[in-house]
Design a protein around this nucleic acid. Structure first.
Length: 678
DNA sequence: GGCCGTTCAGTGCT
DNA sequence: CAGCACTGAACGGC
């Protein structure tokens, strides 16, 4: 290890701003060089307290206050042993808390004054807190060490700062691939369980191993695929953006945002910490404690403990474990990651978890909760200058979806540029300038192929599944024996080409093998952007693997295209798209015998798409080398391999209002972002 | 290192 | 549909 410089973890020091710091260091080691605090005063020593406490433990009154005189209208609590215990316990806690807080705060202030001077002496204020750790400041070593197998979580506390664009993209890619593996493994596991259902019940008649979320995580842990296990990161996790959405707690563990599958406060224990104080790194706010209050930028978070088996507050909380860590984080002014959990219809788990960025604990106290028991509370305030909170964007988008347009009164150019051709409206929004260009094109729901395409190798045969397709039917066999989509219509694995059921099949339009031919399901919005000209975003949360839309245009043969391109360039060349489908469902890191799907092989696409007069929403997708949307080729209404439909699927969970992006494959022209139809 | 208790999960049944 | 029981995984603490 290199020499560590005290990272100035004092109450009033600003969190280093990654943008302000020069240099290329990625890992900042944090040491808590603050001398050990005085031994805690024994709180048991006769806490003289002027007030009389009334704690009704047998019949907790939600309105009861801690500091009340006995209420004569209430039955007198005859001091059985229980009440006496509760009384003294509460006194003990209160006193411990009061003592601990006042003393430590004072000491901190003193220490803070002192060290502010020291710090000026040898650290440039603009680069303070950046301490290169020689052997670990390169991307490769960071990533490699993240992948060591079966690792215990490390106790080394670090802050990752100052990532350049390349680094950001690298880490984003790592996170995205990790999440893809988690997701496809989870779906894979549940599908396997589905197949073996009949003989897979446990002694209680319950389905065994029904938890794909757990199985997936455990397999990945065995393979050393969990991220950030070798560091305890305080602050943001590289590759995880504010607003990122997760459906399972375990997935949050896998990327290292929060290490515990159930507990709400993650922290470094006192024995792992350099100065003997526990340090909280992240919390999850999901309404599990009745005394929480959450107004977004300010959270009143309840500590843990004191709940019974049914999650009812049944005892006092103590200043220990995660609670103590939160209090210590407050004293040191260390930021805490906040993830919020919501119930959410349409989520595979019924819930979503949103990463909302960094907060600081600014206050902490003990009070009587609704149950009447003493609960420890923390006030957290969101650190400024972060991207907008994911959870408030979710709510904002929900309001927009529900037609409460007053949340965004201005900027609508069209309420549906598809003119009702899609099942859901496609909005056009521009609050930047008066450009209305997308209005001037005819909206094309599906691509227009040359007529001869339909006569080639006529797909006269289809399946005979009158009441919906089942495994092993004709169309399933065309796809290599199984369908490309799961029961929920999610793409299981990308393939060179997918055969959906079509007009020659006898199955109904509700057949599971018709995912991409039934049009939009999410409310999309074409919006004007200063960075990309036009962009596309969704008002709905789009789950990874979901179908989004077709990329439509008028198909031109190479000869036609050559003529056409003389008149300007409104052509899309499908063969240039990055082969991102191959990444989706790639489990080569899990199964040693995994082979990338090669069947059926598709000839290089030798056509162009004219979008000069007719186009759809896809045309406004921006270009990115770290895209969240992929192109999957699909055939359903004809059998000509050379002319498949270009279908777009989500590569990750795409939060509402986040720009969709596609790898157009034109890396040489990449200038940050590039919208094709501008 | 093992065991045990704790923990703002998730599933499926009543 | 809410409450409940059951299973579960990681981790702190002993």
């Amino acid at each position: 290890m290199g020499s560590f410089i005290d990272l100035n973890l004092y109450p009033d020091s600003p969190v280093p701003d990654t943008a302000d710091v020069a240099g290329g260091d990625i890992i900042t080691a944090l040491t808590l060089n603050i001398p050990k605090l005085e031994p805690k005063e024994e709180p048991y020593d006769d806490p003289p307290h002027p007030h009389h406490f009334l704690i009704n433990s047998t019949n907790p009154n939600p309105n009861s206050s801690i500091l009340t005189q006995p209420d004569p209208s209430q039955p007198v609590q005859h001091a059985g042993d229980d009440e006496a215990d509760v009384f003294s316990e509460f006194q003990r806690i209160s006193e411990m808390f009061r003592t601990a807080f006042s003393d430590k705060t004072n000491k901190f202030d003193a220490k803070n004054q002192q060290s502010a001077g020291e710090q000026d002496g040898f650290i440039d204020p603009n680069s303070q807190a950046i301490v290169p750790v020689p052997e670990e400041n390169h991307l490769s070593t960071v990533a490699d060490s993240s992948r060591r197998k079966n690792q215990q979580r490390s106790s080394e506390l670090v802050r990752v700062t100052n990532l350049g664009i390349e680094d950001e993209r690298y880490f984003r890619d790592v996170v995205r691939k990790t999440r893809m593996i988690y997701d496809s493994l989870r779906v894979f596991v549940s599908m396997e369980d589905e197949k073996r259902k009949s003989n897979n019940y446990n002694a209680y008649g319950r389905l065994k191993n029904a938890r794909g979320d757990l199985r997936s995580a455990s397999v990945m842990k065995e393979r050393g695929l969990w991220l950030n296990r070798d560091k305890r990161i305080v602050g943001s996790i590289p590759g995880v953006y504010v607003g990122d959405i997760f459906f399972f707690r375990m997935e949050i563990c896998v990327v290292g945002l929060h290490g515990l599958p159930q507990a709400g406060i993650d922290y470094l224990t006192s024995s792992q910490s350099s100065n003997g104080d526990p340090i909280a790194t992240s919390i999850i706010v999901s309404g599990g404690y009745e005394d929480d209050q959450d107004s977004g930028d300010v959270i009143i978070y309840t500590g843990h403990g004191g709940q019974d088996k049914h999650n009812r507050q049944a005892d006092h909380q103590r200043l220990e474990g995660g609670n103590l860590a939160m209090e210590r984080s407050m004293s040191y002014g260390i930021e805490v990651r906040v993830v919020r959990g919501f119930r959410y219809e349409g989520s595979p788990s019924g819930k979503v978890y949103v990463y909302d960025g960094l907060y600081k604990v600014v206050d902490s106290w003990l009070e009587a909760g609704k149950s009447g028991f003493g609960v420890i509370k923390f006030k957290l305030v969101r650190i400024e200058n972060q991207p907008e909170m994911g959870s408030s964007v979710l709510k904002y988008a929900e309001n927009l979806r529900k037609g409460r347009l007053q949340v965004r009164p201005n900027g609508y150019v069209s309420m549906d540029i598809s003119m009702k051709k899609e099942h859901v409206p496609v909005l056009l929004f521009n609050d930047i300038d008066d450009n209305h260009e997308p209005m001037f094109y005819e909206y094309l729901v599906t691509s227009v192929f040359p007529p001869y395409v339909y006569h080639f190798g006529a797909k006269a045969s289809g399946c005979d599944c009158v009441s919906g397709c089942v495994e092993g039917c004709f169309c399933a066999k065309q796809n290599g024996g199984e369908f490309a989509y799961d029961q929920n219509g999610l793409l299981v694995r990308g393939k060179p080409l997918i055969f959906e059921c079509g007009p020659h099949c006898r199955c109904p339009s509700s057949c599971r093998n018709r995912v991409s031919q039934s049009g939009l399901k999410n409310r999309l919005e074409v919006f004007r952007s200063r960075e990309t000209g036009w962009g596309v975003r969704s008002l709905d949360l789009i789950q990874a693997g979901s179908f989004i839309c077709e990329y439509t245009g008028v198909i031109l043969t190479r000869e036609q295209a050559q003529l056409f391109s003389m008149n300007g360039d409104n052509l899309i060349y499908p063969n240039r798209f990055g082969e991102r489908w191959a990444e989706w469902g790639d489990l080569s890191q899990i199964f040693s015998d995994y082979v990338r799907p090669l069947y059926p092989s598709v000839p290089p696409l030798d056509f162009a798409m004219d979008v000069s007069r007719m186009r759809n929403v896809a045309c406004y997708l921006s270009h990115s080398l770290c895209p969240n949307v992929l192109v999957q080729l699909v055939l359903y209404d004809h059998a000509n391999y050379a002319f498949p439909h270009l279908m777009l699927f989500a590569m990750e969970n795409i939060p509402p209002m986040r720009e969709l992006s596609l790898d157009y494959g034109e890396a040489d022209e990449w200038t940050g972002k590039l919208a094709i139809c501008n």
